[in-house]
Amino acid sequence: MHKKVSVLLAVVCLTLLAFTLSSAVRFVESAHELPQSGNQQHSKYRLVLITSDMGTPFWQKLGTSAELEAQSLDATLEIWGSYGEDRESFLKQLEIAIDSRVDGIIVQGIDTSEFNNLTKVKAAFYGIPIITVASDVPVEESLRKMYVGSSPIAAGQMLARQLVHNLGEQGTVVLMGDNRNEYDQRQRLAGIKQVLAQYPNIHSLYVQTPEVRESIIAATQNAMNKLPNVSAFISIDANLTEAMVQEISQRARVESFKIYSFDDNPDVLPLLRSGKIDGILEQSPEMMGKVSVQMMIKWLKGSPLPIQGEGYLTDIHMRTAADEQ
């Protein structure tokens, strides 16, 4: 009797002890140490990539390749920026980057006086090198060290040539651009116009509109009213393309118009795939990201930058609806 009770109790006790121990082990294991803090700086160079079009596939590709390159070159790269066309926030980011004295700033060039003021005066005051990427600004206005991206003039020319190739040497073309009239947009327009000037039978109309949906629709309507025989559209600012195409499709069959666009907006590619637009000019964001970081590190290390005219020009090529079929 005594023995049975003893054995039973002992078994219960041992079982409970095992459970208690496992609980204790879980308790001890659940403790996390505080992340170590220390004074050491982890990498040599602190770089910032600032864009006003955060989250677009174009900038995502660019940012990813830039980060990878920075990692391999022992530098820290942070991507800051604003979403959409929030210029104020974009400039604020740029100022913070300058005030917090990063080692180098890679920035999407925006040709405004505030931007130029920041880069020319403030960044230069602190000795922070600035490389523009994807969009350029005039070097004499901004004192940027280098431009890495596609040549906007070449891009405009390529697009115009494609247009002529598809349309023939005769027709009416509407060129849509936004009313901020930025540097790279001007360059693209210049490129297009250089080509179109060789074909006197191609008439072109340059329309400027604010980057607001209603305005774009209104501008498109206006242009179509003014030029009923319009046969082609070129959207110089990719952000305008989607609204423009939609308005056109409301007025007529989209397929009957030749429509061209640049690639730096995520809405453009689906339109190309569905055949609503006939061609886009594709740039190489990965290349831009990679090269811009390389150039910045090179500059910071004190080696001279290769001066290639306007900067380091990356590949561009046309991607047409026919390619997609």
């Binding site: 170590q36 803090s37 004074n39 050491q40 982890h42 942070e78 980057a97 005030d99 917090s100 004295r101």
Partner: peptide, 21 residues
């Protein structure tokens, strides 16, 4: 500057520089 860790290294350096500025 004692708060530095691998996560906030970049931001903290900027922060300290902002104070300098």
């Amino acid at each position: 500057s004692n708060l530095r860790n691998s996560e906030n290294d970049f931001a903290l350096t900027g922060y300290i520089n902002l104070i300098d500025s």
